[in-house]
């Protein structure tokens, strides 16, 4: 008897056994200035993130196009104007676009009105680059305030990739019988958490050593193996300034090659996975979000 999820025919399209979603968080200078605009004079630190725009993003785009991998790029809306030509290239290459707010806001520290304004501004900005109607939202950081799922839908976003806590997509209750599909991630599959480093301001907070490249790749490959075993959905988060260096692009190449090699993966954009999952009847009463809704109705809506 199997209690965990097991590969189920029909869980993914085209008879594929599991799903892999590659996402890129393109923050540019807002990585620093979104949370703290007073740091605008730190040109050297800002140049870390400019590197992502200048070198990292093109290198990632090349890696994806060489392998025919569709991806989703999450961009704060305020970057659309300054980085329009790069984002046009992303869209022209067939990648999906989504928003991480307008300026990487902490939505849990904003009023309801300010949340709404940021979401609408971000959605409008992404709409300047792409006519796609199924645009995704990723919470920049912090907690998910009550009512945000409804606001995300009302602003015209179709899905989200903001939560941990599951190995397949699930439905975040948005009230009035509505729900927002989330394509959840795990913290292992995240290049910045493994590799980002800065002197001042300190990144990460405790300035632990940069992780071993080979070990991180092996962690990713083990998560891929676990995902393959049970037929799950694996979400990778990359950042151009981190994964797009000459030394680390090799990890991206080798991970993508390992995914493609199996021939069993449905490598899809976040939007494709979310629309596929919307056909599911729901997450079921056992799902933690449903439990949370019963135990503490005010936590989500």
């Amino acid at each position: 008897m199997t209690r965990a999820l097991s590969p189920t025919p029909g869980r993914w399209p085209e008879g594929r056994r599991y799903a892999v979603v590659v996402t890129v968080n393109f923050d540019a200078e807002l990585a620093l200035l979104g949370p703290d605009p007073s740091l605008a004079s730190l040109e050297k630190t800002l140049s870390i993130f400019r590197y992502g725009a200048v070198r990292g993003a093109p290198r990632l785009l090349e890696a994806f196009s060489d392998r025919g991998v569709p991806t989703t790029w999450f961009v704060p809306g305020a970057l659309v104007r300054p980085y329009r030509s790069l984002l046009d290239e992303v869209a022209a290459a067939g990648h999906g676009l989504g928003a991480r707010g307008q300026r990487l806001e902490r939505f849990d520290r904003l009023s309801e009105g300010a949340c709404r304004d940021a979401l609408h501004a971000a959605r409008a900005a992404i709409g300047e680059v792409t006519a796609a109607d199924d645009v995704g939202f990723r919470l920049p950081s912090g907690e998910w305030p009550p009512g945000l799922a409804a606001q995300v839908l009302d602003a015209g976003f179709g899905w989200s990739s903001s939560w941990t806590g599951d190995d397949v997509p699930f439905l975040v209750p948005a009230g009035d019988g509505r729900a927002l599909v989330d394509v959840p991630f795990g913290h292992t599959m995240h290049d910045r958490l493994a590799f980002a480093w800065n002197f001042a301001p300190p990144m990460p907070l405790g300035q632990s050593r940069i992780a071993s490249y080979e070990d991180v790749l092996e962690n990713w490959q083990l998560e891929l193996e676990g995902c393959r075993r049970e037929g799950l959905c694996l979400v990778l988060q990359l950042h151009p300034e981190v994964a797009g260096t000459p030394g680390r692009i090799d990890l991206v190449w080798r991970f993508l090659d390992a995914v493609l090699e199996t021939g069993e993966a449905w490598v899809a954009s976040g939007s494709e996975v979310a629309s596929w999952w919307r056909r599911h009847p729901g997450s079921g009463p056992e799902h933690p979000v449903e439990l949370l809704r019963r135990v503490s109705p005010g936590s989500l809506t």
């Binding site: 965990a4 907690e143 939560w163 806590g165 049970e230 979000v289 503490s296 989500l300």
Partner: peptide
Amino acid sequence: WGMPRLFVQGAYGPFRAVPRIL
């Protein structure tokens, strides 16, 4: 109760991980 993401991350244990361990 004001941290739904943290709640769901923790609930992953009994929801998904314990069945996998069994």
